[in-house]
Simulated assay, not measured.
Amino acid sequence: MTGVSKDGENAIIIVYVLTTVATICAAMRFKIRWHGQLGADDYLLAFSLVLIWLQAVGNTLLAVKGGMGRPMATLSEGEIEWLFKMFYAPEIGYTLLTGVLKLSILLSYKRIFGHMRKILVYIHVLMGLAAGWLVSCLFVIIFQCWPIHKVWKPLTPGGCIDLLAFLWATSVSNFIIDWLILSVPLIPIWKLQMTPIKKVFVAGSFALGSIACITSTVRAAVTGTIDVTDMSKSVFMASIWTYIEPTVAIVSACLPFFSKFFTEKVRNIGTKGRSMGNKYSKNGSDFEKGEGHITKKTTTTVSGESRGVRNQHELVNYSVRVGATPDGHLRLHSDSSTSLV
Rank of each mutant, 00 (worst) to 15 (best):
Met1Asn: 09
Thr2Gln: 08
Gly3Cys: 01
Val4Asn: 01
Ala11His: 10
Val15Asp: 05
Val15Tyr: 01
Tyr16Val: 04
Val21Asp: 03
Ile24Ser: 01
Cys25Leu: 13
Met28Ser: 07
Lys31Phe: 13
Lys31Ala: 15
Ile32Phe: 01
Ile32Gly: 02
Gly36Met: 02
Gly36Pro: 13
Gln37Leu: 14
Leu38Arg: 13
Ala46Pro: 11
Ser48Gly: 11
Leu49Pro: 09
Val50Lys: 00
Trp53Phe: 08
Leu54Glu: 13
Gln55Ser: 15
Asn59Leu: 06
Leu61Met: 14
Ala63Glu: 10
Val64Trp: 00
Lys65Leu: 12
Thr74His: 00
Leu75Gln: 07
Ser76Lys: 02
Glu77Lys: 10
Glu77Gln: 14
Glu79Asp: 11
Glu81Met: 12
Met86Arg: 04
Met86Tyr: 13
Met86Ala: 00
Tyr88Ile: 04
Ala89Gly: 08
Pro90Cys: 03
Pro90Trp: 06
Ile92Phe: 05
Gly93Lys: 00
Tyr94Gly: 05
Thr95Phe: 00
Val100Ile: 13
Leu101Met: 10
Leu101Arg: 01
Leu103Tyr: 04
Ser104Phe: 07
Leu106His: 11
Ser108Tyr: 12
Arg111Asp: 04
Arg111Gln: 08
Ile112Tyr: 02
Gly114Arg: 03
Lys118Ile: 09
Lys118Gly: 07
Lys118Pro: 06
Lys118Arg: 14
Ile119Asp: 08
Leu120Ile: 00
Val121His: 08
Tyr122Gln: 13
Ile123Lys: 04
Ile123Val: 12
Met127Gln: 15
Leu138Glu: 15
Ile141Glu: 09
Gln144Asn: 08
Trp146Phe: 12
Lys150Ala: 02
Pro154Leu: 03
Leu155Arg: 12
Pro157Tyr: 01
Gly158Asp: 06
Gly158Trp: 03
Gly159Ile: 02
Cys160Asn: 07
Leu167Asn: 15
Phe175Gln: 09
Ile176Cys: 03
Ile177Pro: 09
Asp178Thr: 13
Pro188Trp: 02
Lys191Arg: 13
Met194Ala: 07
Met194Asp: 07
Pro196Val: 00
Ile197Ser: 12
Val200Arg: 12
Val202Ser: 03
Ala212His: 10
Cys213Ile: 07
Thr217Arg: 01
Arg219Gln: 14
Ala221Ile: 15
Gly224Arg: 14
Met231Ile: 15
Ser234His: 06
Phe236Cys: 04
Phe236His: 11
Met237Ala: 15
Trp241Gln: 03
Pro246Met: 00
Thr247Lys: 05
Val248Pro: 07
Ala249Trp: 04
Val251Gln: 02
Ser252Gln: 02
Cys254Gln: 03
Leu255Asn: 05
Ser259Cys: 11
Phe262Tyr: 11
Val266Lys: 07
Asn268Gln: 14
Asn268Pro: 04
Gly270Thr: 12
Lys272Pro: 06
Gly273Lys: 08
Ser275Gln: 14
Tyr280Lys: 05
Ser281Arg: 15
Ser281Gln: 14
Lys282Ala: 11
Asn283Gln: 12
Lys289Pro: 05
Ile294His: 07
Thr298Gly: 02
Thr299Gly: 00
Glu305Val: 14
Glu314Asn: 15
Val316Pro: 08
Ser319Gly: 00
Arg321Leu: 05
Val322Phe: 04
Ala324Pro: 03
Thr325Met: 07
Asp327Ser: 12
Gly328Asp: 09
Leu332Asp: 08
Ser334Thr: 15
Ser334Lys: 09
Ser337Val: 05
Thr338Ala: 00
Thr338Ile: 10
Ser339Ile: 05
Val341Ile: 08
